[in-house]
């Protein structure tokens, strides 16, 4: 992507708009909303993405700026990655100590399949659900599914819709959810830090921000763990999808739909609604089983 970076510095209009967004959002500063025991953190970066989207619909920026912005995301992201790295160096002893957790939590990225696939099938989605839930559906996964099924296949439509969802809503959603989950669930901030490496730079930044803001005392270690996890995911993510994620999704999809078919056959007389609620119970059972396996 960096190959396209020619003449982008001249797009003063884009840079001026972003500078203005940075000034305004940092002046607004950080706010928080308490919901029950949890806290939703509103950070400048969250306002920045929302203001950015809104500005696209004003005459201030055109499609050209929007296209140029994509490369700028990448260039700026390299600074964040460098920041991750310089936090990780001094934390080397902690990283080594936490090595097993760091490596094995990569398998947690398969959680998309165990949680989202049953829901997709329950909602009546067909093979689209394979494309949607085999991973978080970023560029590399788009390429993988296109390669295997073609972009116009049901799987291709699924991964494409997830790509669009993640692009537009991903960082906003994970940014809001991250702070809330970290303040409500009884899991340690370090565990969440390791979970932020989900395979998308801007989503990692959005998930990490609230953790750093909510636990300032642990900010250094949180950033180091997040950086290491992000790095691991960026290197291993695609291979994990090819070797484990996609085959597992297809198998699990078959299991889920087979039960569904069997059920509807057994309940020939029952209404479609009943059959669907049966599937609901079964899929819930399946997720429960897999969950208890993980806990054991």
């Amino acid at each position: 992507m960096e190959g396209k970076a020619l003449g982008l510095w001249k797009d003063w209009r884009l840079h001026a708009v972003v500078l203005a967004i940075v000034i305004v959002t940092e002046l607004i500063g950080q706010h928080s909303i308490s919901i029950g025991a949890g806290i939703i953190l509103l950070l400048p970066m969250l306002y920045a993405v929302i203001i950015g989207i809104s500005i696209y619909f004003t005459p201030i920026v055109t499609k050209k700026q929007s296209e140029n912005a994509e490369t700028l995301v990448y260039i700026t992201l390299t600074l964040l990655i460098a920041k991750f790295g310089v936090q990780a160096g001094p934390a080397l002893p902690q990283l080594i100590a936490a090595g097993p957790a760091l490596i094995l939590q990569e398998l947690g990225n398969l959680g998309t399949i165990l949680i989202a696939l049953p829901i997709a099938v329950l909602l009546g989605l067909k093979r689209e659900s394979i494309g949607m839930t085999h991973s978080i559906g970023r560029e590399a996964n788009l390429a993988l599914i296109t390669d295997k099924f073609g972009l116009s296949s049901p799987e291709g439509r699924g991964v494409m819709s997830m790509y669009i969802f993640g692009t537009v809503f991903g960082s906003i959603f994970i940014g809001l959810a991250s702070g809330f989950l970290a303040t409500t669930l009884p899991l340690h901030p370090y565990s969440f830090a390791m979970a932020t490496g989900i395979g998308s730079g801007s989503m990692t930044a959005a998930a990490l921000g609230p953790l750093v803001a909510a636990f300032p005392d642990m900010a250094d270690t949180i950033t180091a763990f997040s950086g290491a996890s992000n790095l691991l995911t960026s290197v291993t993510g695609l291979y994990a999808s090819i070797l484990i994620g996609l085959p597992l999704t297809e198998k699990f999809y078959k299991v889920l739909t087979k039960r569904r078919e069997k059920n509807s056959a057994e309940n020939m007389m029952a209404s479609k609604l009943d059959a669907e609620s049966n599937v609901g119970v079964i899929t819930e059972k399946v997720t429960d089983d897999t969950k208890s396996k993980v806990v054991k």
Binding site: A48, V49, I53, V61, K63, I164, S171
Partner: peptide
Amino acid sequence: NLLAIATPILAYAGISIGRSWADF
């Protein structure tokens, strides 16, 4: 500050995302 790096990333991202809004 890490968050000072994250803000411009997401501001650029927002402008870039606008293009996909219709699809979204």
